[in-house]
Amino acid sequence: MSEARLISLTVNGETRETLVEPRRLLSDVLREDFALTGTHVGCEHGVCGACTVLIDEKPARACLTYAIQMEGHEITTIEAVSDAGLSPLQRALHEEHGLQCGFCTPGIVMTFEAFLRDTPDPGEEEVRDVLSGNLCRCTGYQNIVSAVMKAAAEMREAAGD
C-alpha cells in the first residue's frame, strides 16, 4: 500500500502540486516532478552544497529535506535568481572566472545571494567561511571569492552606500 500524499509547494513564487511518498527528497521533487534541474545533486549527504536552495529565504540542502515538510514554506531555486539577465553575483562569477564545469555554481549562487542580502559588506575571511560549505573541484576557490567580493561592492554601490 502506497503512502503517497498530494502536497502543494510554493516554488519560485508559484504554487505546484505533486504526489509524493513521505521519504521523497525535495531535490528529487524539484528535478523530476517540476523539471527545475538547476538544483544539482552531488553527494546526497548535504556535504557538497550543490543542491542548495532557499527555504524561506535561507540556504538549505534540498538533498536533506523531505518534500512533504515543505508545505507552507517558500522555496527558491536557481531558476528564480534573475528574471532580467544575470544577477550581479552571476555576472561577477563570469567576469572573475569563478566558473569552470558549473556543477557547483547553482549551490554557490544560492548560498551567496542570501549571504550578500544579509551581509552587504563582507570581509574576505567571512566569504571564505561561508564558501566552505560548497565544494568545487575546478576553480581553487580564489576566483569565486574575488567574484563574491566584486558582487558585494557592486550591490552596495547600486544601493547607494
Rank of each mutant, 00 (worst) to 15 (best):
A35P: 01
I108R: 03
V81G: 08
G85K: 04
M149E: 11
Q69E: 12
D56S: 00
C48E: 08
D121Y: 03
I78N: 05
A153S: 10
D83W: 07
F115R: 04
K150S: 14
P106I: 09
K150W: 01
T52L: 01
N12H: 00
D118I: 01
L89N: 00
S82Y: 06
Q100I: 01
E44C: 04
Q100H: 13
C43H: 05
F112M: 15
C43A: 08
A84F: 10
V47L: 14
T76L: 11
L19H: 09
V20Y: 13
R156Q: 13
E3N: 13
E125I: 04
I78A: 08
E57T: 15
Y141D: 14
M149A: 15
H73N: 15
H73W: 02
M155V: 08
L99S: 09
F112S: 14
C48W: 05
D56P: 09
V53H: 00
S2C: 09
G98F: 06
Q69N: 14
A62D: 06
T77K: 15
S27F: 04
I75N: 00
L9N: 03
P88M: 12
R117N: 06
V81I: 15
S82F: 07
D121Q: 10
G38W: 06
M149G: 12
C138M: 06
H45A: 08
R5G: 09
P88N: 12
V11F: 06
R117Y: 04
E95M: 04
T77H: 12
A35I: 10
D83K: 07
C51L: 10
G85R: 04
D121G: 02
A35C: 09
V130H: 05
Y66R: 14
E125K: 03
T77L: 15
E57Q: 15
M110H: 10
H40G: 03
R24K: 11
L89Q: 05
E154L: 13
A60I: 05
M70P: 08
T18M: 00
V148W: 06
Y141T: 13
E125R: 07
V130F: 03
H97V: 15
F34H: 01
R128D: 03
D33A: 08
G85F: 03
I68F: 09
L93Q: 01
A151R: 08
G133T: 03
G46F: 00
A152M: 07
V29F: 01
L19Q: 11
A80Q: 10
L135E: 10
A152D: 12
R156G: 06
A60D: 01
M110K: 07
R61C: 15
Q90V: 02
H94F: 11
T37Q: 05
T76N: 10
T119A: 11
D129N: 14
H73P: 00
T18A: 03
C48V: 08
D161Q: 11
L36K: 00
H97F: 13
T105R: 15
A50W: 04
E21Q: 14
G140T: 14
P59Y: 06
N12I: 02
S2V: 09
P59C: 13
A151V: 02
T65L: 11
V29R: 01
C51V: 13
L116R: 04
Q90M: 03
D129E: 15
P106K: 11
G140S: 12
